[in-house]
Design a protein around this nucleic acid. Structure first.
Length: 721
DNA sequence: CGCACGTGGTTTTTT
DNA sequence: ACCACGTGCG
């Protein structure tokens, strides 16, 4: 093999890459070359003849990461990466289920429900079962089902000791039955079904166990219990599981990720030693030291301390603004300055804890004329018009897909109203068929719809994919529908038409890039890679995104905004066990995105949910060593940080948020927002909000140690400070 | 059928 | 403040 493959690796990286055939856990810190290690290991295994490309199974969480891996691998080795099993958990499970659809008891053209599809499917089940959606909010129901599946539990396996849970289990069971009848699977079902297939089918399991000698997993800290079970099953007794992850960057517990999988892996696979990648190639020393200091406040870490040869660097800049608007102004000015110094906008990121915070920032950016791009939000394949188009295509593939039928049976409107649909559903229920079957037996306009689908099917047979879609767009009436929009909706309709055109482009591209260019394959692509298709990122633009979305990225300059107690760390995290630790990891992720310059800012007052909120600076700021910080605003943290943050002086009576002459936050409760108070049990704090008056009055107090709490004035004994 | 108005919710999210 | 969703009316 070529020695160049391994050159430039540091000792632990080299050790990881060249490990013998054994299971391993690689604890890879931020910016420590994790992806490089992963891809180089694959290249190493193949080029030494240890394993053939077919014997590799490499799993990631996102399509982006999978693509990156494939790209780097093809650059390293002169092999055809097509056909290699490198992909997301969902993508790989899909592949397996498609290959063995009969054994998995699925139709060949089974469709994949995204979250929105799943929600409407849940709602339909609940309606059919007469479930009170006040007592059982559909969203919660959906979460219950997904969460159960991610634990590897079918409805009958869920422990239900109370009537409430039993009812949910009932819905879960019926939901699964409905999906089975309609030939659709949701995201977690892909994994669970695949797992069950391998558990039950010994021959199949052994076949894949024989095949995948080396299994490699990226971002292992984000795996949920079902994903871990799946990996364990495929690894069997003889294969090696090479897991790369960072417990300090585990920020997805809220959606079922189980960091404990890292410890479990050590035990289940008898991992002899954990290899730590601690040399960071991304950030300057100060940034790294600050991150280390912050994360050292977490308990139960596997233990890891990043270091860099790039010692020192700039201090971390901290800015306190009176209001969120002024915070945004400061940031925008700072960015304009950086730009004038030659930094390109795309090298700068603006991070926030929650999406709502982007509004103020965007406003400031627009007025300053700086181009930016907000990441996250509505994805291409999730747009209404695209979903409509896909629904027609799905129905053509699989007429049992009731979700798809309901979406387009009367869109564009063809006179099939709520009444006709109810009749259809009733007929389907009585005869135990799907809606399309019921529709096929109906007359009138419904029959017309059935005819439309049949004619779309027959007239597009053997056409290439883009032509199929083009035909459907025209003959479904979608194009005409949007073309006929006038008045207020005209602009919106034009954009939708653009997107439909873009769908054709996406299909053309898909045909070029994929060997399997069937409609089923394209529909799967649309479900599993909803976000991949994004237009317009050529321009040099700032990156605006949540901290979550920033994981895995890096920038020369990073702004972490809204560093206020209750926002970041977020209020709701207090209710969750280990919530604060996860918030701290989130902050750790945020800090470690920066290469050279890091700004952290907060505001004294902020408009939140239509209300003025008075915040105190994030406790995370206190956890950063003073000597690494450079304060850009007058108010500095000195001997007693809390002292510096309290609002000993009354808040000004005029603020951007308060009409002139009115006392701030004065609602008759007798406490003023900004007032420092003492509570017998919770100690020192600052009033951040008030509500009601007299006996019913409540105040929100942000306590120094106990966090933020709402207190009923009737009971709370508060004293002024 | 489509619009107008009212109501509730509001952390993070990939697949 | 804002948005998404649901209901009721023309």
């Amino acid at each position: 093999m070529s020695t160049s493959l391994l050159s430039g690796l540091n000792p632990p990286q080299l050790q990881a890459v060249t490990l013998p055939h054994q299971s391993a856990l690689i604890l890879a810190g931020a910016g420590s070359g994790k992806t490089r290690v992963l891809t180089t290991r694959i290249a190493y295994l193949i080029s030494t003849g240890e394993v053939s490309p077919q014997g590799i199974l490499a799993v990631t969480f996102t399509n982006k990461a999978a693509k990156e891996m494939v790209m780097r691998l093809s650059a390293m080795l002169p092999i055809n990466t097509r056909g290699m099993w490198i992909g997301t958990f969902h993508g790989l499970c899909n592949r397996l289920l498609r290959a063995h659809y009969r054994e998995a008891n699925l139709p060949q053209t089974f469709q994949i429900l995204d979250s929105a599809d799943q929600l409407s499917a849940v709602k339909r089940v609940m309606k059919a079962l007469n479930v009170d959606d006040e007592k059982f909010p559909p969203r919660e129901m959906q979460h219950f089902i997904s969460a159960s599946k991610e634990q590897g539990l079918r409805a009958h396996e869920v422990e239900a000791y109370d009537p409430y849970t039993r009812r949910k289990v009932e819905v879960y069971a019926e939901y699964d039955a409905q999906c089975q009848k309609e030939g659709v699977v949701d995201f977690s079902e892909l994994l669970l079904r695949c797992h069950e297939l391998l558990v039950r089918n010994t021959a199949l399991r052994e076949h894949y166990q024989q095949r995948f000698k080396h299994i490699l997993v990226d971002e292992f800290q984000d795996t949920n219990p079902l994903q871990y079970q799946w990996l364990k099953l495929l690894a069997g007794k003889n294969n090696s599981l090479f897991a790369v992850g960072d417990d300090d960057q585990s920020i997805y517990a809220f959606r079922g990720a189980h960091v404990g999988n890292m410890q479990d892996l050590l035990r289940d696979f008898n991992v002899a030693s954990v290899i730590k990648l601690e040399q960071n190639y991304r950030s300057h020393g100060n940034i790294l030291d600050a991150a280390n200091a912050l994360i050292s406040n977490n308990r139960n870490r596997m233990g890891k301390k990043l270091w860099t040869s790039e010692q020192g660097g700039e201090k971390l800049r901290v800015y306190e603004a009176p209001t969120d608007v002024e915070e945004a102004d400061f940031i925008v000015n700072e960015i304009a300055h950086l730009k004038s110094e030659g930094m390109s906008l795309s090298e700068i990121a603006l991070l926030y804890r929650s999406n709502a915070q982007s509004r103020v920032l965007e406003h400031a950016l627009v007025s300053k004329g700086l181009s930016y791009r907000v990441y996250g939000g509505l994805r291409f394949f999730e747009r209404q018009e695209i979903k409509h188009a896909l629904a027609y295509l799905r129905l053509m593939e699989n007429t049992d897909d009731d979700n798809a039928l309901l979406r387009v049976v009367n869109f564009p409107t063809r006179g099939i109203g709520a009444r006709s649909i109810e009749q259809l559903q009733e007929a389907a229920r009585i005869n135990n068929t799907t809606l399309f079957d019921a529709a096929a037996r109906a007359g009138g306009k419904v029959a017309g719809f059935v005819g439309l689908i049949e004619s779309l099917k027959s007239s597009t047979q053997n056409l290439p994919l883009p032509e199929i879609i083009d035909h459907v767009l025209v003959h479904s009436g979608l194009i005409a529908h949007y073309q006929n929009e006038t008045g207020a909706k005209k602009r919106e309709a034009e954009e939708r038409l653009e997107n439909l055109k873009e769908l054709l482009t996406a299909a053309t591209l898909f045909v070029h890039e994929n060997e399997d260019d069937s409609l089923t394959s394209f529909l799967t692509h649309a479900s599993l890679e909803a976000g991949e298709h994004q237009a317009g990122d050529q321009e040099d633009a700032l990156h605006l995104m949540t901290v979550h979305a920033a994981k895995g990225l890096e920038f020369n300059a990073v702004f972490i905004t809204g560093l206020e107690e209750g926002l970041f760390p977020h209020q709701n995290s207090q209710r969750v066990d280990g919530g604060l630790d996860e918030e701290r990891r989130l902050m750790y992720v945020a800090i470690t995105r920066a290469r050279r310059r890091l700004y952290m800012s907060f505001a004294q007052r902020r408009m939140l949910n239509g209300q003025v909120n008075y915040g105190v600076p994030s406790s995370f700021l206190h956890e950063l060593p003073d000597d690494m910080l450079q304060w850009l605003s007058p108010r500095a943290m000195q001997r007693n940080p809390f002292e510096a943050f309290g609002y000993a002086t009354p808040a000004p009576s005029r603020s951007p948020f308060a009409p002139a002459g009115e006392g701030l936050g004065e609602k008759g409760v007798g406490w003023r927002v900004g007032q420092r108070v003492m509570h017998q049990k919770f100690g020192e704090g600052v009033v951040t909000n008030t509500e009601g008056g007299g006996k019913d009055g409540r105040v929100q107090v942000n306590f120094k140690h106990a966090g933020s709490k709402w207190l009923a004035l009737e009971y709370a004994k508060l004293e002024t400070l």
